[in-house]
């Protein structure tokens, strides 16, 4: 049982890290829009257009690590597996 809970904890932490990294390792909170750089050739103004895109923030990393850590701690409440 302990091993199973520890594995769940590990995969939860790993999932948090992977989701955060794939999303671009954003240091701020999650966002639901992305700014696309644009250029107006006549005025030479650089501006941005907003488009919908979900980008996970640092809370995904922390949530994954906290849940993973919690599962690992909880696992110690269960007895060690018997060595055959």
């Amino acid at each position: 049982m302990r091993n199973v809970i520890q594995k769940i904890g590990f995969y939860l932490a790993l999932a948090g890290v992977i989701v955060w990294l794939i999303g671009g390792a954003r240091k701020g909170f999650y966002v639901v829009t992305e700014e696309i750089p644009q250029f107006d050739p006549i005025t030479e103004i650089e501006y941005s257009d907003t488009r919908s895109k979900f980008i996970p923030g640092i809370e995904f990393l922390f949530t994954g690590l906290i849940f993973g850590g919690s599962f690992c701690l909880i696992s110690f409440l269960f007895s060690k597996p018997l060595i055959k």
Partner: peptide, 21 residues
């Protein structure tokens, strides 16, 4: 009418930098 005119703002806070348009 082309939607180019943009004012952007940035608050470089100790916890997080907040940027917007």
């Amino acid at each position: 009418p082309k939607g180019v005119n943009t004012i952007s703002f940035n608050l470089d806070g100790p916890l997080e930098s907040i940027s917007g348009t």
